[in-house]
Amino acid sequence: MATKVLICDDSNFARKQMARSLPDGWEVDITFAGNGEEALQAIKAGQGEVVFLDLTMPVMDGFETLENIKVNDMNALVIVVSGDIQPEARQRVKNLGAIDFIKKPINKAKAELILKEYGIL
């Protein structure tokens, strides 16, 4: 069964960059979201087993999205992919239940490393 991967970022370029960075040969079914609200809908619809989530976004940012996932006990492994590399941002997202944090810009090596580390791949 293909893994349901959700990529949430307000930038179309960033979404494509993320999709291109997924490991070759990993069987995935990719859904895209442009903000946190769209991401929550996709997760509810079962499209987000693994979620790559940006932080700075309009409508609903990544922090709020994580809070919603946590409060509603939604089933999703969330990896934050962000340009906000301040130590506090990293700590906050981990406290909110994200399994890890990848610094932008994303690339294949970073994505593969983290997916292997958590046994997703």
Binding site: S11, T56, G83, D84, I85, Q86, P105
Partner: peptide
């Protein structure tokens, strides 16, 4: 915008 986003974060 995305490039700026990454740079401003650094």
């Amino acid at each position: 915008q995305e490039i700026s986003n990454v740079a401003m974060g650094q």
